[in-house]
C-alpha cells in the first residue's frame, strides 16, 4: 500500500519533470529535466521492485544510475564542445 502511494507520487513527479523537458526553453533545462527523469525512474524501479516483491530490480536501478550519470555528462560535453572526442589544443579561446 505504501509502495503504491510512493509509486503514484513518483509518477506525478515524472509527469512534472517531463513537462519541463518539453517546455525547455534552453537545452540545459531539458538536460536537467532528463537527469531528473532518470533519478525518478531509478526510484520508481526500486519502489516497483518492492511492490512486486522482486528486489532484483535494485540491481537494474544501480546500473541505470551509472548510465544516467554518464549519459548526462556526455550530452553536456557534446553540447559544449560539439564533439565527444574534442582536442584541447585546437579549441579556440573564448
Amino acid at each position: 500500500m505504501m509502495f503504491a502511494a510512493a509509486a503514484a507520487a513518483i509518477l506525478v513527479a515524472l509527469a512534472l519533470a517531463i513537462t519541463r523537458a518539453i517546455k525547455g526553453p534552453t537545452v540545459f533545462d531539458r538536460v536537467l529535466a532528463g537527469n531528473s527523469v532518470g533519478t525518478l525512474a531509478i526510484m520508481l524501479l526500486a519502489v516497483v521492485g518492492f511492490l512486486t516483491e522482486r528486489p532484483e530490480f535494485l540491481d537494474i536501478g544501480l546500473t541505470y544510475g551509472l548510465l544516467n550519470l554518464i549519459g548526462t555528462l556526455s550530452v553536456l560535453k557534446f553540447f559544449r564542445h560539439g564533439d565527444l572526442a574534442y582536442d584541447v589544443d585546437s579549441e579556440p579561446k573564448s
Binding site: A9, A13, L16, K23
Partner: peptide
C-alpha cells in the same frame, strides 16, 4: 520522501 520528490518536481516546473 514522496512529498519532497513532488516538491522538487513542482519547483522544477
Amino acid at each position: 520522501g514522496s512529498f519532497f520528490t513532488l516538491v522538487g518536481a513542482f519547483g522544477l516546473v
